[in-house]
Design a protein around this nucleic acid. Structure first.
Lengths: 209, 209, 209, 209
DNA sequence: CATGAATGAGCCTTCATTCAT
DNA sequence: CATGAATGAAGGCTCATTCAT
């Protein structure tokens, strides 16, 4: 039992180290981008020597890759579908879904930084942007498409082109995220007002007459 | 006079060299980001030696800064206001303005790459994102605000919050640009359909009843 | 008695571990040389962790030293004098001695690899080449000298300079070993023909008229 | 003319640098082997910074390769055939050829060091040992074969197997080189006596009766 | 103006060695 | 005994920057 406990804790400690490194890597990579971050700094943030990182990840690339995947996965670990399925109208559902996306993708700074990395380093890591699409955009669009279909089926919404709709209706969320990424301090964005007008326009735009 | 002429042509040649270097720098920086581009590659693209770059720009940072500013300025060298001021209705004007923005910011690959650099390197070059805001977003938002005001004045549009409106109505343009930046090849975006639905939703959303 | 037995088996196990490590070290060092072999690889070959090696040898140098000494000693564990002392003529004896040396130093790949290490790393390990001289060359030369003396005493051989003779007469053996070390695959050496001509020339060269 | 002169000297200086680096590399590689030599030391020997080496050679491997090839080529730049073609007898010719080989391969320390590198690093650089064979052994053996054929044709030498003869007759040269490489200081080899007995045995061994 | 050799700081990666468990 | 995580000192290679020509 001792042995089992010791082994267990060893594995646990290793898991924990992995997590610590990922966390440190996230901060450094997010702050400086792939090329400009120094593994020295990542290690220092963990409180470990540079060489130790190589006990966990075989290269800077692998660390970056693992970090991004883990951040994406962790961000979406909440697999509860967005929105409020019990809502009376599709309009309320759509608003709930959008609010959910704002919370996940625009309000959370970690998600924003991840987005920056995807945009900035996507060219060098095609697998990662694919993964990001699969885990993030695909789900987001699926959610929006579902609400649209419900609303159309109920006669609440006009039958617009779904493929474009999911993109166009998500755009202000993405924009809010990017805006905060780039201009947070200098030109603050009032997220509530942004969300309010976003819903207003979309819902009025979709409404049947 | 000879001397002046010679001096003039010399200055011209120097101007031309500047332009060549900026152009080469744009391609390299856009492709690899600030940290990962090598001045060697920029120089090779110009057909010149690395050392020569320092006759024109004092450092990598300065070259990057000059390049981004020049690209921004050149992109906006067309100072004609967007849209079609002669249009009969504000709705048509708004559509014209949006179409104009799509052409400038989503369809043109150079503008997209510039956007990536702003997002990716903004943290390291705060003056540049400020400049970008001043030259790009400020103008864009001013254009949208004007049309909104016209439409409201004419009773065509509802009087929505202008600050949010300019952002929300521009969002699909920005999104299209970023999407093409990241997913061009894998998940193509139908820009015409995107634009069409964008206008549809916005105009229907704005319309007074 | 139990204790003694246990201790004994423990010591045996320790001896066995030593042998395993030496064996693994031989393969790695022979394949890559001193500087380029990794203790990780040696340990992996034993099926043990790198750290464990330090329970047996205090450093890479010591392991190398011990390995070479052990290989030399083991190679010569057969202390039977070379050749055939009962042979009728010194010529037959000489041929028998040479055959013996071919078997020991040219045909056996382990001996060849050892030779490479002596040549390659001798500068860094002077004690080892001294040991090699004492255990290998000194014996080889003594054997040849003895046969020469017998042949001269019997009037079969001319009285050539013994110091040079032992070297010159051994040279083709050494050459065969080195050739196989370097060119085994590309330019195979017919050891039997080599040996035959070697004997032919030496015996004819030594013969009194 | 100035320009041409300047350009010329620049190229010359670059050539000279190449030569200096090769020379320094030879000393360091010969002293420590491939893996254990530090480019820092090579650079220091040239009186230059480590980074400068990369202006001339793309990697440590390439430098090593170039160095070995250049040393081999330079050693054999003397394309005069070995021996003394005007000699009266094949025996005298053979002795002259062998003396020549002793001078080239056993007396010259540079050649010996090269040999050590071939033996030590051959496994890692198969092309180099091939090159060495082509430039060194092939020529050496061709020289010996020619003299043998002449001697046989004249009835001076017995018609022994040529393939083995070239190897066996060269062996003492190789051995002398290796001996000096390994045991120079501790067990000096009297090269003249070695050569004398070598010739004595070979010539007596070859002679027809 | 332009070159290109040279620099030197710095970064990623490796690996012999140590040590708490 | 054995482990394996951790260290830290290098070492190969890169690249922005300088400068004599």
């Amino acid at each position: 039992m001792m042995t089992a406990a010791v082994r267990g804790s060893r594995r646990d400690r290793k898991e924990a180290r992995h997590a610590e490194i990922i966390e440190a890597a996230f901060h450094e990579f997010a702050a400086h981008g792939f090329a400009a971050t120094r593994l020295d700094d990542v290690a220092a943030r963990v409180g470990v020597t540079k060489g130790s990182l190589y006990l966990y990840y075989a290269s800077k690339e692998e660390l970056f890759d693992a970090m991004v995947r883990q951040q994406i996965t962790q961000t979406l670990i909440d697999d509860t579908p967005p929105g409020d399925a019990t809502a009376a109208t599709a309009a309320v559902q759509l608003a709930a879904v959008l609010r959910d996306y704002y919370d996940r993708y625009a309000r959370d700074s970690r998600t924003r930084e991840l987005l920056r990395l995807i945009i900035a380093e996507g060219g060098k890591f095609p697998d990662l942007i694919e993964f990001y699409h699969h885990e993030v955009f695909a789900r987001v669009f699926a959610g929006l498409r579902r609400v649209l279909e419900i609303g159309v089926a109920r006669g609440e919404f006009r039958a617009v082109a779904a493929d474009s709709f999911v993109l166009v209706s998500f755009a202000p969320v993405l924009e809010a995220a990017i805006w905060r990424l780039v201009y947070t301090d200098r030109y603050p964005l009032d997220l509530d007002a942004h969300f309010a007008l976003h819903c207003d326009l979309i819902l009025n735009g979709l409404r049947t007459r």
